[in-house]
Design a protein around this nucleic acid. Structure first.
Lengths: 138, 138
DNA sequence: CTTTGCACTTGCAAATTGCAAGTAAATATA
DNA sequence: TATATTTACTTGCAATTTGCAAGTGCAAAG
C-alpha cells in the first residue's frame, strides 16, 4: 500500500503531497477532459509519461481513493480507471491550471474550452464534473 | 538562466512544467497568505524546505517572471521577493488546493479562511490578489 | 575587529525519474 | 492448435533531483 507522508497540516501542502508532481494531474486531466480510462490511453498522451511512472501514479491515485480500478467489461486483461468523488473534486484545480497556462504560456487549448471557462467558470466546472460522474457509471 | 522545457502545448501540462512540484506553490502560498518575502522567512515554514531547493525555486520563479527580487530597504545583504501579476494570477490555483486539501485531508486551516472561501470564492480570491499587489508596492 | 544575521553554495548519499527491455495473461489470427 | 497481438505492467540501470549538513561571503552591529 502506497502511503503518503504529510509534511504539515496546511491544506495546500497536504494537497501537494499527493498532487504536487508533473504527472498526477495530467492523468486526472486525461480522465476529465479526454474521457480516458485505461493504462494504454494514458500512455498515448502528448507528454509521454514513462510506463513505470504511470503504473506508480495510478497505484497512488487508487490507494488514495481518487480513482477506482475495475476489470473492463469487454476484456478481462484490461482495466478501467474511473474517478471517485474525491477525484472529481480536483476538476476546479485542473481548470485553474488551464486558465493560468493559457494566459501565461504559449499553449493550444481545445477550441471553445477557453471561452466556456471564461464565460462561466463555475458552470463549466460543474459540467465537467457531471460528465466525469456519468462516465464512472458506464 | 533557468529555462523550462515544455512537454506539450496543453495548458495544464505547461502550468505543471513550472508549478508541478512539491515546493513552488508553497513558496507562493507563503507570499500570498503569510506575507512572506525573504529567503529566511520561507525557510521557516512548517514544511522545512531545503536551502538549495529554495534557492533553486526562487531563481526559477524569478526567471519565469512570477516574482521580482530586489535589495531590501533596510539591509543591503537582504533581498525582498515580491509577486508580479503573473504570480498574483496563481492565487486561484492555491485557493483550489486549499479547498481540496481541507475537504479531503486532515488539515488545519487558518480560522475564518475556509468560511471566507466557501462564502464567496471569487471575492476572496480578489481580496488576496489585491493584498499581494499592495505588498508589492511596499 | 570580532560576531551575528542573511543569503546562498557545496558535497554527498538517497530517492526519483526516464528510457529500454522484458514478463505475463487474455484474446485474436492462421 | 500454434502463433501473434494486445494490454498492463515489472525490471534494470543511468541520470537527474532531493534532502541534509556544512561551509562561504558580505554587510552591519557591538
Amino acid at each position: 500500500m502506497k502511503e503518503l507522508k504529510q509534511r504539515s497540516a496546511c491544506p495546500v501542502s497536504t494537497s501537494l503531497d499527493l498532487l504536487g508532481d508533473k504527472w498526477t494531474l495530467l492523468i486526472l486531466r486525461d480522465m476529465v477532459f479526454a474521457g480516458k480510462s485505461t493504462y494504454g490511453q494514458f500512455l498515448q498522451s502528448a507528454e509521454k509519461i514513462a510506463t513505470n511512472v504511470l503504473a506508480d501514479r495510478l497505484a497512488v491515485l487508487e490507494a488514495q481513493g481518487l480513482v477506482t480500478k475495475t476489470v473492463a467489461a469487454d476484456k478481462k486483461s484490461k482495466f478501467t480507471y474511473r474517478l471517485t468523488e474525491k477525484g472529481v473534486d480536483t476538476v476546479p484545480i485542473i481548470v485553474e491550471l488551464v486558465l493560468w497556462g493559457a494566459k501565461h504560456g504559449s499553449t493550444v487549448v481545445a477550441p471553445g474550452l477557453l471561452e466556456e471557462l471564461q464565460a462561466g467558470k463555475d458552470a463549466a466546472v460543474a459540467k465537467y464534473q457531471q460528465l466525469a460522474r456519468e462516465q464512472a457509471l458506464a
